[in-house]
């Protein structure tokens, strides 16, 4: 019963997290919200397996935990370099002007 309450709470958190993805003024807010939505999804899938007594759903949660991060890296490269093919070490700007590189999307 407590576990069902935890699942309900987690779903509330997902719904609240969705708000920032919908209204977020900048794209970064949306990505942040989507990324944290992914982490909550991992937790929810792990939890729902226990709630329904089918813990073999954990494999899906592992896949999410591993893969969720790759899309965020791709978005980060999209913002900073406007290219998916660049090597992160080659294009790195010099240290003194580092943070000022890149135009606003």
């Amino acid at each position: 019963m407590l576990l069902a309450a935890a699942a309900a709470g987690l779903m509330t958190a997902m719904a609240l997290g969705l708000v920032r993805a919908l209204i977020g003024p900048t794209s970064y807010d949306r990505i942040l919200s989507a990324n944290s939505f992914g982490t909550k999804t991992v937790m929810f899938i792990a939890l729902i397996g226990f709630v329904f007594g089918r813990p073999d759903f954990l494999d899906i949660a592992i896949a999410y935990a591993l893969i969720n991060f790759v899309a965020t890296i791709a978005l980060m490269k999209f913002f900073r370099y406007r290219s998916l093919q660049a090597s992160l070490s080659r294009l790195a700007p010099a240290k003194d002007t580092g943070a000022d590189a890149g135009g606003a999307p």
Binding site: M14, L18, A21, L22, S27, R30, I31, S33, A34, F37, G38, T41, F44, I45, I48, G49, F52, R54, D56, F57, D59, I60, Y64, A71, L75, F78, P105
Partner: peptide
């Protein structure tokens, strides 16, 4: 904004994966 659409679509796929888990379609 197409970028917003892409981000929201990824959230959509998160939710539909959760929904399919709830439907027992592992």
């Amino acid at each position: 904004s197409l970028l917003t659409a892409i981000i929201l679509t990824s959230v959509y796929s998160f939710i539909s994966a959760v929904w399919l888990v709830v439907m027992d379609a592992a």
